[in-house]
Amino acid sequence: MNLVKSKIGEFGLLGALILLLMVYTLIAPNFMSVNNALNILRSAALVAIVAIPMTFVLISGEIDISAGPLAAFSGVMFALLVSHAGVGFVLAALIVLLIGTLSGTFVGAMRAYLNIPSFVTTLALWGALRGLAIWSSGGHAVFIKDRSLRQTFGGDWLGIPVPIYFAMVVITLFFYIAKYTPFGRSVYSVGGNEASSRLVGINVAKTKILTLAATGFFAALVGMLIDARLSSGNANAAEGFEFDVIAAVVVGGTSLAGGTGKVMGTLIGVLFIAVLSNGLVLLGMNPYLQSVVRGLVILLAVFLNVMVGRKA
C-alpha cells in the first residue's frame, strides 16, 4: 500500500496532467494546437517565474501573498521611470528589480528581527502596493512610447513567447539550488526544523530573507514582462496573480507548514492549473463556474497530496 501511495505521489500530478491533456484534446475545441499550447505556456511562464522562488519561501515556513500587487506596482514604476522620468530601459529595470528585492527583504527582516509573520506583512503589502500603484499611475495606464520594449520582450523569440525563456532559466536555477547547494539545503533545513538549524550554525534569518527577496525580485520581473507585452504599466495588472502562484505551489505538493516541497512539483502544478483553466475557457464554461471548478480541483489536489504524504 505504501508503495502504491508513494508512486501516486510521484506520478500522481503528472499523471493527472497527462490525463487532463488527453481529455481536453478530445472534448475542447482547438485545444491541441500550437497556438493554444503557446498561449498556455506564456501565461504559465509568468506564474512559474514567481511560483518557483515562492516554493522556497513556503518550504522555509513562510509565505508571500503580495506577488500580484508587487508585480503591478513594479510595472507602473517601470513605465513611469521610462516614460516620465526619461530613464533608460536598463537602468529602470535595475531600479525596479531592486524595489522588488527590497520589498521581499523587508518582509524577511520583519519576520527575522521583529517576529512578525510573513503572512501579516505581505497582507499589508498586498493592499499598500496596489494602492501605491493606483496612486502613482493616476488611475490610468502609463504608456511606454518607445516601441522597442514591446518588440524585444513583448513578443516571441524564435517563435516562443519571451517569458518562457525566463521561466526556463528560473526553473533550472532553482532546481539546481534546491538539490546541489548548501543554501538550498538550508532552506529545507530551516523549514523542517528551525531550532535544529539554528543550533548547527545555519543563519536562519539570512535564509528566510533571501528566499523572500528572491520572490520579490522575480515578481518585479514579471511586472516588467507584463509591461512589455502591453507596452504600458497598469495598476490593475496581475489581478489574482498571487493566488495563481500559491495555488500552483500547493497543488505541486509543497506543504504550507513548510519543510517539504519540490521545484519540479511546482512546475507541474503551474502547468496543471494553466491547462485546466485554458481548457475550461475553450469549453466555453461560464467564468464564474470556472473559478468554482478551479477551486475544487485545487482542494482535491491538496487532499490527495496530504493522503499520499501520510505514513502507514
Partner: peptide, 20 residues
C-alpha cells in the same frame, strides 16, 4: 525538538553542520 531535522535523511543530518 532541537537536534535533528526530521524530514532529512540520516546522511544529511550527519553532515548538516558542514553546510553553513
Amino acid at each position: 525538538l532541537e537536534g535533528f531535522v526530521g524530514q532529512f535523511s540520516v546522511m544529511e543530518n550527519l553532515e548538516l553542520p558542514k553546510f553553513p
